[in-house]
């Protein structure tokens, strides 16, 4: 009797806000990926772009969702989780639509989930310090949130703002209940640890953006630091007090 090999359904969630220049290349790159026993489906989510992202997505024939209003990055990614849950995907990947996260690195971030070693995998550019390393001020912010997370939940995620992540079913269900709207990445770590999920960080190569403009224009923005810190702190207190 042969071993029954069940194929895993993998959804790659790509939030797009004014990414018309990047979607076609990204789509082709994802289509080329072959992972054993896995079926990889890219899902683009057009977050009410003001450019022709939607037309581009239609042209290339990609599967996409079209937000009726601007939901910001958090609401958009969360929508992807809802789609993954409804359509019974085993793993959801979150990948930026700007080409910073090379699809060729996908197998690295799903491996720990396929091996049942983690619920959440975060792709990090700081473990091996290869590829695009970002600017000084950005790195300061990333480091700050990394330390804040360490202080609150006791785990260290070096690339705390990395949006290149993989989640298993358990993590997806939890993120449908709660996911922050803006700059969700550092806060999500605190949430997921409080939900007793296992997070691992794996080294990946990242690039600088292909085109378009980043959603975070100035990482030093005081607003960003204060907002995310406060959110994270309040979320942690709330989850601790609810047991």
């Amino acid at each position: 009797m042969g071993r029954i090999v069940t194929s895993k359904k993998i959804l790659v969630i790509i939030p797009c806000y004014n990414e018309a220049e990047n979607v076609a290349l990204l789509y082709n790159q994802i289509k080329e990926i072959q992972i054993e026993n896995c079926k990889v489906t890219p899902l683009f989510i057009n977050d009410y772009s003001t450019d022709n992202t939607k037309t581009k997505l239609e042209q290339i024939g990609a599967k996409y969702l079209d937000n009726p209003i601007n939901l910001q990055i958090g609401g958009t990614v969360q929508l992807g989780f809802m789609y993954a849950n409804e359509n019974n995907f085993d793993i959801a990947i979150q990948m930026d639509g700007d080409g910073q996260h090379p699809p060729s690195e996908l197998n690295k971030i799903i491996k720990p989930i396929l091996l049942n070693e983690a619920d959440v995998v975060i792709g990090s550019r700081y473990i091996n310090k290869e590829g695009f390393q970002s600017t000084f001020f950005r790195r300061f912010g990333i480091d700050f949130f990394s330390k804040l997370n360490k202080l609150l939940v006791g785990i260290t995620v070096k690339d705390s703002t990395s949006g290149y992540r993989a989640y298993n079913k358990n993590a997806i269900c939890n993120l449908i209940d709660y996911y922050p709207d803006e700059y969700p990445e550092p806060e999500a770590i605190v949430y997921l640890v409080n939900k007793k999920l296992k997070i691992v960080e794996v080294p990946v190569l990242m690039k600088s953006r292909l085109g378009g403009v980043s959603s975070i224009k100035n990482f030093t923005s005081i607003y960003y630091m204060i907002k995310v810190s406060l959110n994270t702190l309040f979320l942690h207190l709330k989850m601790k007090s609810n047991g």
């Binding site: 599967k63 969702l65 079209d66 209003i69 929508l79």
Partner: peptide, 14 residues
């Protein structure tokens, strides 16, 4: 509430 509604609409549209 608006966020939830918009998300549901996007799913239904698809």
């Amino acid at each position: 509430q608006i966020k939830k509604l918009a998300q549901e609409i996007a799913l239904l549209k698809e």
